[in-house]
Design a protein around this nucleic acid. Structure first.
Lengths: 263, 263
DNA sequence: CGACCTTTTGAACGTATTCAACCGATGTGG
DNA sequence: CCACATCGGTTGAATACGTTCAAAAGGTCG
C-alpha cells in the first residue's frame, strides 16, 4: 500500500520518478508491517493527539526499514533526495564536506531522531550520514510525508516543528563554536549526550562514546589531541572518569557550572 | 480578507487566539493591498510556476507590513510565535543569547530572506531579530501559511525548501566556525555578502557594511580587534580596500583562493 | 562643540595547534 | 596462538593564532 509513495503525487520539482529505485531496491531495505503505534520511539517521532484514523494515515509514511552496518552510509552528500530517515536503533554521525575537501561533523544522532532534512531544499542530500555502529532506520519517503501532511494537520505541524528545532539546534552549536572555550565545548557536548541518553532510558552518567576523539574534535572545532587533553583534565579535576570510550560523569553539577563561567 | 488568518484555522498547539493582538495592533504594523505578484522580490520569496488561482491564495498569506527602525527588534527571543517575516527592505541581524547571557550573532539578513523560522518548534522565537537600519518586513502569520500550504502544494514545497535551506546554511556556518582560521572566516563572510548583494542587483565588489566589527566578530567567532586587524591585513595584501564600513573587493580571485588554502 | 561609540593599533599573554613519540587495544594472517 | 600491523588515544614541547588589556584616533549625533 505504501508503494503509492513512489508514484510521487506531489508537484515537487526535485523528486524524479526513476530515482526512487535507488532507495527501494537496496538489498538492505525491507518492507515490513508498519506499526508506529506500538513503536517505543512513538513519542519521539510522532505527533501527539491524533485519532485512530489519522494514526493510520501517518503510519503509511513509513515505507520500509533499512539496516546500515558500522561504517556504511545511510546516504552521501549529493545523493538524490527521496526520503528522510527516522533512526530506530544505533548511532550516526552527520558530516559535511566543503569544496576543499575539509570534512566537518555536524551532528551525532541517535534513536528517534530524523536524518536527511538537509536534502529537501536542493533535491540532493547536503551532507553524509554514516553509521557509527550497526543501525536500523525507518525510510520515510518525503513526497509521501508532504502528501499526507496535507491531509493530517498534526503531521504537518509536527514536520514543521522538527525542521524548526533542527534550526534551533544548529544555532546552539554555532553558539558553542563561536563563543566557548575548549573546556566548555566538551562539557556542553557531554551534558548534551547525557540528556539524550537519559531521555531514552539509558544512564545519564555512564555511557559509551561511539565516536572517536577526532570526530568529537571535528564536531567541537578542536583537534583530537586537544579533546584528549581535555578528557584527561576533566578526569584529573574529578569531573568524570574516562577509559577509552567509556565515560562516567562524576560531578554533573560542576560540569554544568563550567558552562556558566565566562571565557 | 486576510483577517481570517487570526481565526487560526489550524489545530496548532502554539498559537493562542489572544496573542495575535501583539502582532497586529502594533503601531508600526499596517494592513495594505497585497501584491506579491508585482513585488520585485517575487523570485526570492515565492514558489515558481503557480497558476493565477494559486497565486491569489498565496498572496493571502501576506497579512500586513511592518516598519522597524534601526536598533529596534522585529521580535525578541521568548516572544510568542505567530508569524514569520519576509524582509522587504533593510538589513537585520539575528542573535541568540544563552543561559549565561552570552550573545552570539547567528546571521545577517537582507531583502527577500525569511526571519522567525526558529519559532515554529517551540511556539516562541528562539532568537532576536534586530534591524541594523530602517527596515520593512511582510508579516506572514504562520497558521495561515500552514493552512494555505495544505491547499497549494507549491507553497508547501516552498516552505519546506526554505526551512531545509536554512539548515544547510547553518551547516555552512558550523563548518566555518569549526574548521577555518580567522582569515578564511572573514574571506568567506565577505564573499557571501558579495554574492547576496549581487543577486539583488547591487555591486558585488563595492558595498557598505551595516554591522559593527563586534557584530561581525560575534558572527565569525572572533573578537572585534581580530576582525579589525584582519581587515587591515586584507587591505595591506591588496585584497580589499576598507574605510570604516565601506568595503571594496579588489582581488575577488585571491579572496576565493584564501578559502582553498589548508589551515 | 563635546560626549560617546566605533575602529585601529601595539604589546603581553593564553589557548589550542602542530609535530612527534609512545602506548594500548584490536584485528589479521602466518 | 602469537607476531605484527593498524588504528585510536595519550602526552610532551615548541609554535602559532587569537585574545586581552590599553591607548589613541576617527566618526557620529545630540
Amino acid at each position: 500500500m505504501a508503494v503509492i509513495a513512489f508514484t510521487n503525487p506531489s508537484p515537487s520539482r526535485a523528486l524524479p520518478q526513476g530515482a526512487s529505485a535507488k532507495t527501494t531496491c537496496d538489498s538492505s531495505t525491507k518492507k515490513f508491517d508498519v506499526s508506529c503505534s506500538s513503536c517505543n520511539l512513538r513519542e519521539l517521532c510522532l505527533p501527539t493527539g491524533m485519532n485512530p484514523e489519522e494514526m493510520r494515515r501517518v503510519e503509511q509514511v513509513v515505507y520500509a526499514r533499512r539496516r546500515v552496518y558500522r561504517g556504511e552510509a545511510l546516504f552521501h552528500a549529493g545523493d538524490t533526495f527521496n526520503a528522510v530517515y527516522a533512526i530506530r536503533s544505533g548511532f550516526f554521525k552527520t558530516t559535511v564536506v566543503d569544496g576543499e575537501g575539509r570534512e566537518q561533523v555536524t551532528g551525532f544522532d541517535m534513536a528517534g531522531e530524523l536524518l536527511g532534512l538537509d536534502g529537501i531544499g536542493a533535491g540532493t542530500y547536503h551532507g553524509n550520514a554514516i553509521a557509527l555502529e550497526d543501525c536500523e532506520a525507518c525510510v520515510l519517503p518525503f513526497a509521501l510525508i508532504e502528501n499526507i501532511s496535507r491531509k493530517v494537520p498534526a503531521l504537518q505541524r509536527h514536520l514543521h516543528c522538527v525542521l524548526s528545532r533542527e534550526i534551533v539546534r544548529d544555532h546552539g552549536i554555532m553558539m558553542l563554536l563561536g563563543g566557548m572555550r575548549g573546556e566548555q565545548r566538551l562539557a556542553a557536548f557531554l551534558l548534551n549526550l547525557s540528556k539524550r541518553f537519559a531521555r531514552r532510558g539509558y544512564s545519564a552518567t555512564d555511557f559509551h562514546l561511539r565516536m572517536t576523539r577526532e570526530e568529537i574534535g571535528s564536531y567541537l572545532g578542536l583537534k583530537l589531541e586537544t579533546v584528549s587533553r581535555l578528557f584527561s583534565k576533566f578526569q584529573e579535576d574529578g569531573l568524570i572518569t574516562v577509559q577509552q570510550k567509556h565515560v562516567r560523569i562524576v560531578a554533573m553539577e560542576q560540569l554544568e557550572q563550567l558552562l556558566g563561567t565566562r571565557h
